[in-house]
Design a protein around this nucleic acid. Structure first.
Length: 260
DNA sequence: AACGTTTCCAACCGCTTTCCT
DNA sequence: TAGGAAAGCGGTTGGAAACGT
């Protein structure tokens, strides 16, 4: 069986894109919109695989991309979302306007992962590694930002048995990544909380129809609601100034939630 | 200045999911 | 409902740039 290749490799360019190729792709997408990636290269006069065109557009040429360094808030949000969603880069990217899954994935692998490891935290489980160096991780100190609020929330999280050795350490305003959120295999006695945590994650993968039917009304779904929160409750950004995962949602634009 | 090493990120690859007939 | 095509996703790689000796 097997599938036919997505493109005829013998007649396609590979490697870095030239300026001319970029211009052709941008011009074509501007004129015809995104989609039909398979037929796009031929239509646009590009000797590229459709996949390659799609990737180039999504990761580099899209006009709404926010390039440049990640902010401390973005760092923090990525860590928190990763602790909830794992390596679901596209879902994480959907919550960081202007950032692509590829960019976030790269950033995670080159910066955040290392920071976490250096702080004695397992970047996969977000738990302290046995004999880990530190109890908290600090991105840029930002006492006046939402990060501080998030850190405060996290610092007040219940302490688990295996952490008791580190309990004596002074509470630090830096972000404590040892979140209480964990995969659905935890203790029996916190069934209720577990349920809530699962509810946090579930809506992140709801179908497009459900999202559109939500109270976003075509203006993008509020992140708090998108992740299962009550409208108007903490975590819902339907009204200004609410928090999501301890971050002021007004800091971030969640239009990305409107997803494909 | 030259060379080796490390870091970073754009791009590729192959698998999975979704859509369509 | 099945099967094929297209799109999407996440892991991995290659090469350029930055850095150290």
């Amino acid at each position: 069986m097997g599938r036919s290749p997505c493109c005829e490799k013998a007649h396609t360019n590979r490697g870095a894109w030239t300026k001319e190729e970029d211009e052709r792709l941008v011009a074509y997408v501007r004129a015809h919109g995104e989609g039909c990636w398979r037929s796009l290269p031929r239509a646009a006069g590009l000797l590229r695989c459709g996949k390659s065109c799609r990737l180039r557009w999504i990761n580099y040429l899209r006009p709404d991309l926010k390039r440049g360094n990640f902010t401390a808030d973005e760092d923090d949000l990525i860590v928190k979302l990763h602790s909830l969603l794992g390596n679901k880069w596209s879902l994480i990217a959907a919550r960081l306007p202007g950032r692509t899954d590829n960019e976030i994935k790269n950033y995670w692998n080159t910066h955040i992962r290392r920071k976490l490891l250096g702080s004695g935290i397992d970047p996969v489980t977000h738990r302290r590694v046995a004999g880990g160096a530190a109890t908290t991780i600090s991105f840029q100190p930002s006492p006046n930002t939402a990060v501080a609020a998030a850190a405060e929330t996290a610092a007040q999280a219940p302490i688990k048995a295996e952490e008791t050795a580190a309990v004596k350490a002074p509470r630090c305003p830096d972000l404590n990544l040892d979140l209480c959120i964990s995969p659905p295999c935890q203790h029996e006695d916190d069934g209720e909380e577990e349920e809530e945590e699962l509810d946090l994650i579930k809506p992140a993968v709801v179908k497009r129809e459900a999202l559109q039917a939500g109270h976003g009304h075509g203006h993008g779904l509020c992140l708090g609601c998108g992740l299962g929160g009550q409208k108007g409750a903490a975590g819902c950004s339907c009204s200004n100034g609410h928090h999501f995962l301890g971050l002021r949602t007004s800091v971030l634009d969640f239009r990305g939630l409107e997803m494909k």
